[in-house]
Design a protein around this nucleic acid. Structure first.
Lengths: 170, 170
DNA sequence: TATTGTTATACTCTATAACTATA
DNA sequence: TATAGTTATAGAGTATAACAATA
């Protein structure tokens, strides 16, 4: 197999990002949760009582999809819809006690996950990486803590960087 | 009350990686190509003449999916199946001249894409980032230049227990 | 009998749009 | 008439497994 030409930074980021998502998905699958569900839980935990419209807007997903997500987590007893008394069209979404427990567990998983991802780096390098990534995220206008996976992707993902020229082996 | 804890490095990587994929997908959409198609083109360009089985194995995708991808690019006149004379079950997949032209165009798009992604960083920082990411990719066992978006989901390694649900997006 | 490529089929996820209930 | 949430439906993308040709 040809050792490929050094991939660009965009492909590296896409590759590692997808890998990170995949690994995290495997971890939360042990709790019988999907990553979109975890993303919603995180958002609700961070700011309880938001309406479904608000949540959908933050996540960049259609309200109908949010209904499905909320349904699933509601049936699991992890979140709760509370009807707003002033405007009975609105649902305020809250975590249940069980939901808070699950979030604590997820927090632990995430810490382990992070540690495993950057285990090849020493402390200084981890700090550097974190700082560089934070700057990029801010510059690119990414909402803190919100995964773009909610938005519609044209396709699942393979960034390619083609420099052609004879195949270099190694 | 939510802790406004900063997102971990795993979430940052997942976020930026998905963003990178999304942006790149938008760029190649202008060529009426999807990112999986570009990924396959890249692989064929780097090492022409591989069989579909080999390509599928490298990408971690089922052979049947590869047929679909090859079909699309074949109809577009970008790649070619050449039957192996020694073993007539095998197809050797090659780029056409048009395919090579498209790869050159994609190379240009990728360069622009990379530049835009890391525009917040100076030259030294870009070099640092690239080095750190390369080390992580190697440590995590990622195949150079191959996006994990092809794989089906290796869910069991970490959690040990495993009810699995669908994988999530990158 | 085993392997390469193909086709047929079913399933999952998501978006669009129609619908209801409140305002 | 407008908005929040829901339901219904359709489409894209993918995996699984049966199948044909070749070894």
């Amino acid at each position: 197999m040809a050792d490929m030409r050094a991939p660009g930074v965009g492909l590296l980021l896409a590759q590692i990002g997808a890998h990170a998502t995949e690994r995290f998905a495997a971890r939360v699958a042990g709790l019988d949760l999907t990553t979109p569900q975890v993303g919603l839980l995180r958002l609700v935990a961070l700011d309880p009582g938001q309406s479904q419209q608000t949540l959908a807007s933050t996540l960049g997903t259609p309200p109908s999809r949010l209904v499905t997500l909320v349904d699933g987590l509601d049936e699991r007893g992890l979140i709760q819809r509370r009807r707003n008394a002033d405007d009975r069209r609105l649902n305020a979404v809250h975590l249940t006690v069980a939901g808070e427990r699950v979030m604590a567990t997820i927090g632990g998983l995430a810490t382990t996950h992070d540690e495993e991802l950057v285990r090849a780096l020493d402390r200084t390098e981890r700090r550097q990486l974190r700082e560089l990534l934070t700057r990029i995220a801010a510059d690119q206008g990414l909402t803190s803590g919100v995964h773009p996976g909610y938005r519609t992707l044209p396709a699942e993902a393979v960034t390619g960087r083609g420099r052609r020229r004879g195949p270099a082996r190694s």
